[in-house]
Design a protein around this nucleic acid. Structure first.
Lengths: 396, 396
DNA sequence: TAAACTTTGTTTATTCAGTAGACAAACAAG
DNA sequence: CTTGTTTGTCTACTGAATAAACAAAGTTTA
């Protein structure tokens, strides 16, 4: 705590870094030759050759046949062996469970979804085990097998992997990580759903080449995942991104968090549903899907509801942009499906109110991965961890 | 832009890192022996010996006499040579100029302040040159001389060092960095005043051992400097921290930024002064200092004004804490002097409204360096840069 | 007081990773 | 068939860290 125990630099660090660099390059440019890899990384041909041979031994890459010659000896093309292992990502939503099995590249190999309403932790746990069991047996044989399990939850997660509070699930102080690690004997990552979604978008979605991304997960509540300087910012205790409880109206509606005028009271799915229920000809049990249909049919009242939500989303985004000067803002989770109705009022609020220089180079997007960002994000966490420990422990 | 041109790792990088680590260790633990440095860094004794000898040649450290023995040969103590060079830091305020001359450790060796009202860029520039000239001649002779000049301005600065907009100075698109570098032939850093203040507090003030710091510069306007994961976060274009224009009241007062309900309309020095001018027995030209005196004399009306400001400060802080989950929030700049009146209502608002788990491990502080944080911060930037380029260019 | 142990700092031999450049293999073009 | 080019490997070398030996300068103990 007192002194930041600076890691001492030595050649092992150098080797690990270069090996990881080579692997990353092959991953991103596959198929690619050794010579081309040397060019791309700036490393010496010999260095690349030796690192490549180690990676081949570890089955993380493979040689495909010869490529086309550009006037000389034909290159041997290298492929990233995305099937060397598999990762499991689970998104625990408020009323659904989504599990995906991905390869090391993040491609979805299999997935399973279950819906339900109002279940306890004990009941959800059973379904969770079912899904994981299913995905494990669905994974083809591979050198490394299941490299890890990641779980995204709609709540705050401590740095030690404990779920401190998931209000919409009514969970409190649940150490799911320990439970899963004991049962499945693989590394387990528990992460807040918005953080995972942000990471998913950065790796596979709209934010691929961007370093400063704000991912707004607008569902029942609102959470935010922050990618700053290219990496996830989690705060001192891992509680960052509680932007749903940002005050946007000093003496506004009362929130159960104890505060007044919280953003998510005005701009979330919950807000939409509660406004809808106050309409004169309100449907019995309004749902996002139902309201979406009504809007499609041209129901003016409902369209105006969506526009209102979009406007309030814009108010919060405005704050976010002034705070972070991000390059990209991505609206994700369930409300992203209403892009058609939300987009214009949202953009409108922004264009009119955000400082002009903040709007330079700024992209506002709706999620590309739609409902999969979180599951893909946590799966990617596990893959990342696998490479981190694997590359340094392996020796030939 | 497409591929993050990852720096290739080689032994030069290793050496630079270790040398910097050794220097940092000596700086922080001075006086310290070679053996002790080896222990602290984890490096081999021989490695430390050789790096120390290079640092001695470069005059960045020096040997003081022998230290006390602990049962063996007496150690030769090493000192960081803080007088090997000097740095200049300038804080351009709305109605004052503050310049400091610091050694490489950040100790203030000399300083000069000038006050004025309503000056143009041309007029301020003259005074700026005067102060820099004075500080340069005030610097004692040293191996490296003036290693750089840093300037903090109350406005947005692009990544290229151009002042894009400083509303309270009425400056626009001024490339002060180029002007100063041409005139003084040393590296010049221009930085937003709040960013610099945050850095100053991290290096020398309340935030020394903290990694996630939010520095709220409450003056005429409100700016925020963000230290996240131990380093300054500047956003995609360097415009982060425009938190003064965060909406805290959807249909609130109109702000000249085009938005409504901006935080700084309710919680800045400007807000205090404009409220004060509306009091029945308002003084002709109220000032922060004058109002402070009135409050000290027990003027109930004025005390209530301060309390109101403190409360609004708390509303914004609340948002900030929910967003960042920081370890420390520091209130700096001119309003920090009213700590006595602001602190209680501010804390009150927070305790009641901030999510409980966010309050864990959270410190709310008022600036230790008071009006010097910005100048010290920019001076420290220059020192940092000096070490960065010096350590890699030097070869023995 | 002398011998034994401790601590400090330097020196030497070794290890390890990256680099430069030579080289052979494989191919294209004239 | 010859020339030139590209690819990939191999060898000799460099530079940095390390371990271990060692000398210098203390302290402690018998």
């Amino acid at each position: 705590m007192k002194m930041t125990m600076n890691q001492t630099w030595n050649q092992h660090v150098v080797k690990k870094g270069n090996k990881s660099l080579v692997l990353e390059t092959i991953k991103d440019h596959s198929p690619v030759s050794r010579a081309e890899t040397a060019n791309l990384t700036g490393l010496n041909k010999g260095t690349v050759s030796s690192l490549v041979s180690e990676l081949l031994d570890e089955q993380l890459i493979s040689e495909s046949g010869p490529g086309v010659s550009s006037g000389g000896r034909r290159p041997v093309m290298l492929l990233f062996n995305q099937l060397a292992g598999y990762s499991i990502g689970i998104d625990i939503g408020v009323n659904y469970l989504l599990g995906v099995l991905t390869d090391l590249q993040g491609n979805i190999c299999d997935e399973k979804r279950e819906s339900y309403t109002d279940l306890t932790y004990e009941e959800i746990k059973v379904k969770l085990f079912d899904i994981i069991d299913y995905l494990i047996q669905a994974a083809p044989p591979s050198p490394y097998g299941i490299v890890g399990i990641g779980v995204g939850v709609p709540g705050t997660v401590s740095n030690t992997g404990e779920i401190l509070l998931a209000p919409n699930l009514e969970w409190k102080n649940i150490h799911l990580q320990a439970v899963l690690e004991r049962k499945y004997q693989v590394p387990v990552v528990i992460e807040n759903e918005a953080n995972a979604g942000a990471y998913g978008e950065k790796k596979f979605g709209a934010g691929k080449d961007v370093d400063d991304i704000i991912y707004v997960s607008a569902g029942i509540g609102i959470g935010v995942g922050l990618i700053l300087n290219g990496s996830l910012y989690k705060g001192n205790n891992g509680f960052s991104g509680e932007l749903g409880h940002m005050t946007i109206e000093v003496d506004g509606k009362k929130c159960r968090c104890g505060n007044k005028g919280c953003w998510e009271l005005y701009a979330s799915e919950q807000a939409l549903l509660s406004s809808a229920s106050k309409l004169p000809d309100a449907p019995g049990q309004p749902s996002l899907e139902h309201l979406s249909d009504l809007a499609d049919e041209g129901d003016e009242q409902v369209i105006r509801l969506f526009e209102q939500i979009g406007d309030y989303l814009g108010v919060g985004l405005n704050n976010i942009i002034n705070i972070f000067n991000p390059q990209q803002v991505i609206i994700g989770n369930r409300m992203a499906s209403a892009k058609k109705w939300l987009r214009d009022p949202l953009i409108n609020r922004m264009v009119n109110q955000t400082l002009w220089f903040q709007q330079k180079d700024l992209q506002i997007q709706f999620s590309e991965l739609s409902t999969h960002s979180t599951a893909l994000g946590v799966a990617a966490f596990s893959v990342e961890n696998f490479f981190k420990v694997d590359l340094q422990s392996q020796s030939v």
